[in-house]
Computed example of a mutant assay.
Amino acid sequence: MGPDPVASSFALPATTTVPELTGEGSSTSTSTASTAPVLEDTSTSSTGEPGTTAPLQDLGMPDLGDLHPVGCKGKIDFLFVISRFGYMETMQERLIEAFPDFIATIQSKFADFDYHVMIVDGDETWGSQVCNADCTPTGCSYPEYPCDAIESISACDTTMGAGTVFPAGKGASNVDCGIVGGRRYLTREQPNLPETFACLAQVGLTGDDRLGEAVTAAMQPQITGPGGCNEGFLRDDALLMVTFISNSLDLFSAGKPKLWAEAIANGKHGDPNSVVMFSIHFPECNPSDRLCDLVKYYFPYWHIADNEDADYRPAFEIATDLIGEACSAFIPQ
């Protein structure tokens, strides 16, 4: 058995205030961190000529070296939060098709690309509750269901926000996907990355769509810290990219978008600029769409794609540009 499940209460301490970015950006653009204003130069040189500035050493100032941020240097933690709700089969397939090109594009931009990839689904259950209760031909209607695995399911398999390693249920992979190292996320040590990702991302159709609650749980210290289900996934010196894929409005997640945003920012030491938010969902963002609120109004780097697009690769191309922008300004904690 693994560690005890993380509690599903998300009353987080108010350690971070996440600014709301009201109205900036769109489903096809992003708002980015503002640059410092250009100030009028009113200084004079040692000869009294205006418009020139004396060197720092002439003023007795120390040489501060290169003040530019060091950047993420190719270290990126990818968190995919995928609904297990009904009718998600096509969307999961399109994600799986787009993933190899997405990773290849990122690889081309970073010479030392170093990734963590974790899949989290929208609830705390494993597989099908009906099949788990009666895994017989009369009790379980899914011929490929892994009945022999039910007794070996760990606490992390039934913990909200824990990385998926063995998707089960209708439309799921129904196999242990074989992550190396005993982790619940993929690293550069993983052979056959596209194939393993495809196995993990096929989370199936027999679960919930509580993605806001799932991402909140996945960022809690109890689950990311020592002994937690996702220990080692989040790295202080890595950019975080969160990708949501859903076909519903997430009406049942505990908490509200501001609370979810605080959990994500707290996981990155209170820095929303170290997060890229990407959602394959509903670009129109109707008033009931809490997932859209989370992506669009609390983080400076974001993009929302249409989940009905026949090909998700163009949307991921936009996401790679966002990663480049965010990495160029990233300051590791």
Rank of each mutant, 00 (worst) to 15 (best):
F99S: 00
K109Q: 15
R94D: 03
E97Y: 12
I119G: 03
I106C: 02
M118L: 10
V120E: 05
I103F: 11
T105C: 07
F110D: 04
D112C: 12
D114G: 11
K109S: 14
F110K: 04
D101M: 13
F102W: 07
G122N: 02
F113C: 12
I96D: 00
Y115E: 09
D114I: 13
I96E: 04
Y115A: 03
Q107H: 10
D112T: 14
D101L: 12
G122A: 00
Q107P: 11
K109R: 14
E124T: 14
S108M: 06
F113D: 05
I106H: 07
D101V: 11
F113E: 06
F99A: 04
A104W: 07
A104Q: 13
P100Y: 01
Q107V: 15
V120N: 07
D112E: 13
E97K: 09
L95H: 01
I106Q: 02
F102M: 04
A98C: 08
T105L: 05
I119N: 00
L95F: 01
I119L: 09
Y115V: 11
T105I: 04
M118E: 08
V120T: 08
E93W: 08
M118Q: 10
D121T: 04
D114Y: 14
S108V: 08
V117W: 08
P100V: 02
E124D: 15
D123A: 07
